[in-house]
């Protein structure tokens, strides 16, 4: 696997986690979520966010509401549900655990 492929696979695996992280701070509509993920260079193509948001919503981890916009059509804002917050806590601790294990591997050369 090339370095670029490795980065793509890694980003894909973490995308769901990153979306939940972004939404844990504030409610956002899809474009704002994409901008934040773009800033962190976590997504390759923007369209990948849409099926993931739908899946998170079906699982009850996020919910959405339509809010009128001053510019253009109404926007669908997403926020974390109680289940989503609990799930994010679990994911965060798993991420910290895996990250620390990998850091140990890197450090113990």
């Amino acid at each position: 696997m090339s370095n670029e492929n490795f980065k793509i696979q890694l980003r894909k695996g973490l995308l769901e986690f990153c979306i939940l992280q972004v939404l844990s701070k504030e409610k956002l509509y899809t474009s704002e979520i994409i901008v934040k993920l773009n800033e962190s260079q976590i997504i390759v193509v923007e369209g990948t966010v849409y099926p993931l948001l739908s899946r998170l919503k079906n699982k009850g981890f996020v919910d959405s509401e339509w809010i009128e916009s001053k510019q253009g059509p109404p926007r669908k804002y997403y926020h974390l549900t109680k289940n989503g917050k609990n799930y994010l806590t679990e994911l965060t601790s798993s991420y910290v655990e895996v990250n620390s294990s990998i850091q140990n591997l890197i450090n113990n050369k």
């Binding site: 474009s31 923007e46 099926p51 948001l53 253009g72 669908k76």
Partner: peptide, 26 residues
């Protein structure tokens, strides 16, 4: 092709509308 892809999703119309909004912004 995008509409077709999302057509099996429960909230396909909303997803597509959202997707189209983003296309317009870009």
């Amino acid at each position: 092709s995008i509409k077709m892809y999302f057509s099996s999703y429960e909230d396909s119309d909303e997803i597509f509308m959202d997707f189209e909004n983003r296309i317009s912004e870009n």
